[in-house]
Amino acid sequence: MAIEEVRESSLPLERTFSLRSLLGARVLSKNGKVIGKVANVNIDRKTMKVQGLVIMCSPLFKRIYIDQRYFERMTPESVVLSIEPSVLLRGKKVITHEGQALGKVRDVVRVDHSNTIRALTVKPLFRGEFSIAIKDIRLIGTSVILRENYHAPASVFWKRKSG
């Protein structure tokens, strides 16, 4: 059945898509990682514009909220982000410049709620966790590679985390 349009300055109907079709759409990071599926679309009450998406990350049913400023492209089938969500760094391997594995990322310390990383908390196997500042990180890719001049604090090799 044809839909009669009643509008003034907004986009023509054929250039829009319904929010319902977005639910369940695949969400991809900048690197092509499949993050999960759209669970909810959040709208600003005043401006009635899309503010962000709640994404259900498949394996553990964990949900993350992504601000619309981090969207790059959006179709009813998928949403491509312009970032690699830093919260997904948990579990990544951390290696030194020389290739020595220090442990895995346990937590990501961010600037407020943004995607900017302030530090990473790393948990070595059988040892206490320690923190690595963003200035000591050379590259975040498949693993987190540290800068050449970074030396893991010696105390972490025998001290347990206090408090």
Partner: peptide, 11 residues
């Protein structure tokens, strides 16, 4: 026996 790592840190 050494690990081989690509520029992205992939093993």
């Amino acid at each position: 026996g050494k690990e081989v790592i690509d520029p992205e840190g992939g093993f």
